[in-house]
């Protein structure tokens, strides 16, 4: 940048510039707000039709205001798919994966980032690659093996698979975080006679706890939203997750337009709640993730 341009011209320019923007900033705000409204319109459509009776929908169409506050669609979906059970399945799978994957990531990263074991660059590269792998490249052997060892159609199969897939990313991220861990702290701990386990538990873990919290939330939400592997592995009403339950009812006789919207609404509520609860941590985490 030519920072040393003639400075006496600058004030006049600046005034004109600011005046110019003072008016146009409202245009910019209007345009961006319009964009945001377009982003939200599908949700408004969904809300509008989730509380509409099928008769109302077929006579007045998708855009009309509901004539009554109709909640039977919600109730139908809730009971027909046994939503509380689906919620529990999703919670069990995502929660277990989040905790286990964070633990595995931390152990891996401890060996790679702090232990600096031989060939760590290749190992980290391998983990990164594994994270990019299309799940189709793994799914059939996993499906077959799960059937052979009796893990097919169990939540455990999905938990094990996603623990590995998520920890591949976690290892990649944490290894680089721990790679910059101050050596002096580690050396001081070693001088005090702390073993590797004590160093991990008492020195490293407390230091990276914020990063681990972010990873925990990411793993939870990512696993919650996963589709292909749960779709293949969980075929039963008693094991399916929320997205799989909704998708497998697509085109079903039960699913008229209002029930579809009601089902989608129920299915989205937990994710939106998590988002609101975790928003602060999340936005911090996205920054951390992008800079690493």
């Amino acid at each position: 940048m030519a920072v040393t341009l003639v400075t006496d011209r600058a004030p006049r320019r600046k005034v004109r510039d600011r005046h110019h923007r003072g008016a146009s900033r409202w245009v910019v705000l209007a345009l961006v707000t319009l964009g945001a409204v377009i982003m939200l319109v599908p949700f408004l459509f969904m809300l509008l039709n989730a509380f509409k009776s099928p008769g109302d929908y077929s006579s007045a169409g998708p855009l009309s205001w509901p004539t009554e506050f109709y909640t039977k669609g919600l109730k139908t979906y809730w009971t027909e798919v046994n939503f509380p059970l689906k919620f529990w399945n999703s919670l069990l799978i995502s929660g277990s994966v989040a905790v286990l994957a964070v633990a595995v990531s931390l152990f891996n990263a401890y060996a790679l980032g702090i232990g600096r074991v031989k060939g760590r660059l290749w190992i980290v590269g391998l983990f990164l690659l594994a994270n990019m792998m299309p799940q189709e490249a793994l799914i059939y052997p996993l499906y077959y093996a799960a059937k052979q060892i009796g893990l097919y159609n169990t939540q455990l199969s999905v938990i094990i698979i996603f623990t590995v897939i998520q920890s591949a990313f976690g290892t990649y991220l944490l290894a680089s975080v721990l790679g910059t861990f101050p050596r002096s702290v580690l050396e001081a701990a070693a001088l005090d006679g702390a073993g590797k386990w004590t160093v991990l538990r008492r020195v490293v873990f407390p230091n990276v706890r914020p990063t681990l919290a972010v990873l925990l939330i990411f793993f939870f939400i990512w696993t919650w939203n996963e589709f292909l592997i749960p779709l293949v592995m969980l075929i039963d009403n008693s094991t399916q997750t929320i997205p799989v339950a909704l998708a497998s009812l697509q085109g079903d006789r039960l699913m008229d337009a209002p029930t579809t919207n009601a089902g989608a609404l129920i299915s989205l509520v937990p994710a939106v709640l998590f988002f609101i609860i975790f928003q602060r941590t999340l936005s911090r985490g996205i920054t951390a993730g992008a800079e690493k």
Partner: peptide
């Protein structure tokens, strides 16, 4: 330190490598 890599490595081989 290899010990800490062991559980992750075994899982990795079973769930990603072998499939």
């Amino acid at each position: 330190y290899w010990l800490y890599l062991l559980p992750g490595a075994i899982l990795f081989v079973l769930v990603i490598g072998v499939p």
